[in-house]
Simulated scan of single mutants.
Amino acid sequence: MTEVSSRHSETQKLLHGLKVQTRVIGALIMRELHTRFGRDNIGFLWLIVEPALLTIGVSILHFTSGPFIHYGMPTGSFMISGYTCYILFRSIINRASDAIESNRTLLYHRMITIFDVLFSRAVLELASTILAIVVLSIMMQAVDYGFLPQRPLIMLIGLVILFWFSFGLSMIIAAASERSTLVERLVHPATYLSMPISGAFSIQQTMPDPFRWYLSWWPTTEAFELIREGQFQDYTSDYTFPVYVVGWCMILSVIGLIYLRAVRKDVHLG
Rank of each mutant, 00 (worst) to 15 (best):
T2F: 13
R7C: 09
T11S: 12
Q12S: 10
K13G: 07
L18R: 02
V20S: 11
T22R: 13
R23E: 05
R23P: 04
I25D: 03
G26I: 13
A27I: 07
I29L: 02
R31W: 10
F37H: 02
G38F: 08
G38T: 03
R39M: 11
N41S: 14
L45Q: 06
E50C: 12
P51K: 01
L53F: 13
I56H: 02
S59R: 09
F63R: 10
T64Q: 13
T64E: 14
S65F: 11
H70E: 15
P74A: 10
F78I: 01
F78V: 03
T84F: 00
Y86W: 13
Y86A: 00
I87A: 07
F89A: 02
I92C: 01
I93L: 07
I93M: 01
N94A: 09
D98L: 14
E101R: 12
N103L: 08
I112N: 02
I112K: 03
I112P: 01
T113L: 05
D116F: 04
V117S: 01
V123H: 09
L124V: 08
T129I: 07
I130A: 04
I130R: 05
A132K: 10
V134P: 02
V134I: 12
M139C: 08
M139H: 06
M140V: 04
A142R: 06
A142H: 06
A142Q: 07
V143Q: 00
D144W: 11
G146D: 03
G146A: 02
G146T: 05
F147I: 01
P152K: 03
P152D: 02
I154D: 10
I154H: 06
I154M: 07
M155K: 10
L156Q: 04
L159P: 00
L159R: 03
V160Y: 14
W164P: 04
F165H: 08
S166Q: 07
S166M: 10
L169V: 01
I173Y: 04
I173L: 08
A174S: 03
A175D: 00
A175P: 03
R179G: 11
R179M: 14
L182F: 10
L186N: 09
P189D: 00
A190E: 03
T191S: 03
T191A: 04
L193C: 08
I197T: 01
S198P: 06
A200C: 05
F201Y: 11
Q204F: 12
Q205T: 09
P208W: 05
F211W: 15
F211S: 08
Y214W: 14
S216H: 15
P219T: 01
T220E: 06
T220H: 02
A223V: 13
A223D: 12
E225A: 12
R228D: 01
G230C: 00
Q233C: 00
D234Y: 09
D234E: 11
F241R: 15
G247Y: 09
C249P: 08
L257N: 00
Y259A: 13
Y259C: 11
L260V: 05
R261V: 14
R261I: 15
R264N: 13
K265A: 11
D266N: 14
H268D: 15
